[in-house]
């Protein structure tokens, strides 16, 4: 059984229904999510990547039953999101993007209250408080006095404190400083070690690269890539530069090599996929220096989004 499974999941926002029409103008339907099919395996950390407005949050809200799909279906832990959303939410922890909290409550009262609504003890709370360096005196203060980072920490704790089988986190590291981001990544690693599943959206490529097993990239509501991180990186074009002391190697026709430029004893090119044909091609050449830039998810992402990147 997959932790999360969507089949042709689609969502078009139509005009407002019922009396809500009085509260705003009628809108043209907008296709926010289009035919999304993906699976998240149990025990993996799955990154859901895309720029703002690409449909990440819509997909998450469909998984939790906040939105109703206009096409396709989704299952979480084998349960249908349309008919079993209450049961799903009992087994899932959720961190909304830019979480809003009850400002008048203290941090402790808020966490206690939200745990009570789950009906399960907050078994992981103390570990999370330690990991995110949230002290008892911080929890005694009203939430309205919290900084953005502290609010985010409370948001992460409320999502994970009851040890959910699946954590769905929308932009979880937003507002955390680099040290706390690292602490958060350790928490995610612990979740994976405990066999729990984490599905999180992000536009911070380095954190996806750092913690995820697999990544889905979404663009304008459509899934454009779903890969193991390693496979995705291996497919990226890496910049290669070498110095030669004599005739440059013949790189035309070598699989994965493109954009070859030779000038002033330097050879520049781009390399994609398996490096062995390239290494074989230069093996007998008088190469004095060789640099192959490591593949970065950022480049993979930008390649998939190059149409959207403004000059």
């Amino acid at each position: 059984m997959n932790a999360i499974e969507t089949i042709g999941l689609s969502k078009a926002y139509a005009d407002r229904g019922g009396l809500g029409r009085l509260g705003g103008r009628r809108r043209q339907p907008i296709l926010a999510l289009d035919d999304m099919t993906l699976t998240v395996r149990p025990g993996e950390i799955f990154g859901f990547l895309g720029p703002n407005g690409s449909g990440k949050t819509t997909c998450i809200r469909l998984l939790l039953g906040f939105l109703h799909p206009t096409g396709g279906s989704a299952r979480v832990l084998g349960l249908d999101t349309g008919t079993d959303s209450v049961a799903i939410r009992g087994r899932v922890g959720y961190l909304p993007g830019g979480i809003a909290l009850y400002d008048a409550m203290t941090g402790r009262d808020l966490l206690d209250y939200l745990a009570r609504l789950y009906g399960r003890p907050p078994a992981l709370r103390s570990r999370l408080l330690d990991g995110l360096e949230l002290a008892a005196r911080d929890l005694a203060r009203p939430v309205r006095d919290y900084s953005r980072g502290m609010r985010q920490k409370v948001g992460i704790i409320q999502a994970l404190q009851h040890d959910p089988e699946v954590a769905i986190l929308d932009e979880p590291s937003e507002g955390l400083d680099p040290l706390m981001q690292r602490a958060f990544y350790e928490i995610l690693d612990e979740r994976r070690s405990a066999g729990r599943t984490v599905f999180f959206s992000s536009h911070i490529l380095s954190e996806v690269e750092r913690v995820c097993d697999r990544v889905a990239i979404i663009r304008r509501g459509r899934l454009v890539a779903l890969e193991e991180i390693g496979v995705l990186l291996a497919r990226r074009r890496r910049a290669v530069e070498m110095r030669v002391d004599g005739a440059p190697p013949v790189l035309a026709g070598i699989p994965g090599v493109s954009g070859v430029v030779v000038a002033d004893g330097r050879v520049r090119c781009q390399l994609e996929g398996d490096v062995r044909p390239f290494l074989a091609a230069i093996a007998r050449s008088p190469v004095t220096d060789l640099t192959i830039e490591p593949a970065r998810l950022e480049e993979a992402f930008l390649e998939l989004y190059e149409d959207d990147v403004e000059p």
């Binding site: 939790l64 906040f66 209450v86 049961a87 939410r89 009992g90 899932v92 922890g93 959720y94 909304p96 979480i99 809003a100 909290l101 939200l114 609504l117 789950y118 009906g119 409320q158 999502a159």
Partner: peptide
């Protein structure tokens, strides 16, 4: 949405 994220 924080409230409705619970099993209610």
């Amino acid at each position: 949405e924080v409230l409705l994220a619970r099993p209610l």
